[in-house]
Amino acid sequence: MAIFVDEKTKVVYQGLTGSQGRFYGLLNRDYGTQVVAGTNPKKAGTDVDGVPVYASVADAVEATGATVSCIFIPAPGVKDAVIEAAGGGVKLIVAITEGVPAHDEAWFFNKLKRDFPDVQLLGPNCPGIISPGKCNIGITAGHIAKAPVAGKPNVGIVSRSGTLTYQALYELKLNDIGVTTCVGIGGDPVPGTSFIDCLAAFEADGDTKAVMMIGEIGGSAEEEAAAFIADKMTKPVVSYVAGVTAPAGKKMGHAGAIVSGGKGTAAAKQEALQAAGVRVGQNPTEAGTLMVEVVNGL
């Protein structure tokens, strides 16, 4: 089992005809993902290395039965692309694009909630989602992830950072631990999918026995996740929070990674997580080691 996406998932790529969309869309197909369509209103009827291109997400959904859209559209077009995807009938939208204005993100988050309550958005500014061995949507290098092994304790990963997601997948692979699904929720101020959405899905997934959660400075998503873990989770959670020593008032690469007015510090997040029973590593490797201990104890 996996959460959100698996081997049956059919994916349409908005922006497949662009350089990024083509590069990652075809890599995703090589991995085994069912890359069934691309969209481009000016190139409908053509194809990208055999993947048919349709004028709109609605056309692609009708022709192929796609249930997920992956967005590689440049930032100025993401707002329209998200609404087009939701209106077009997909159930999950994975927005990889970085640099989307925060006001656009706040707007389409609330628009989806109101007009398309059944549609889930992941991102923007995220690496995407991979259910190792089954489906890879986005920019994660599939071969650094170990597929889940039947009869063994497999874990789920949820992360705000791209490279630390890869690091986590890799640490688990080195330790021979399989991953059911790894979700990169992205580093922006208004992520479509939250830690809590993923934790709840992992809690409900029979094959996921523990969860690795990677946070970073800024906002209060980790504190909210800690409250959820304390109240609702029975499965063990291991965490790492990046930016312990980040200076206040400076954006550390990600738009959402900023300590402001004494709020959003890594220390406060670590404390909240520890109070919720989460084992917190001081660096990615330590978190990996803690996960090995957790898995060995299962």
């Binding site: 992360s159 705000r160 950072s161 791209g162 490279t163 630390l164 997601t165 890869y166 690091q167 580093g187 990677i214 970073e216 400075i217 790492y240 990046a242 930016g243 312990v244 020593t245 980040a246 550390m252 690469g253 990600h254 990674a257 890594a266 001081q282 660096n283 990615p284």
Partner: peptide, 15 residues
């Protein structure tokens, strides 16, 4: 390479 890894690197140097 990557914002998260860069933050993590700063952390680990301090640690």
């Amino acid at each position: 390479n990557g914002a998260g890894l860069a933050m993590s690197t700063v952390d680990i140097v301090n640690q």
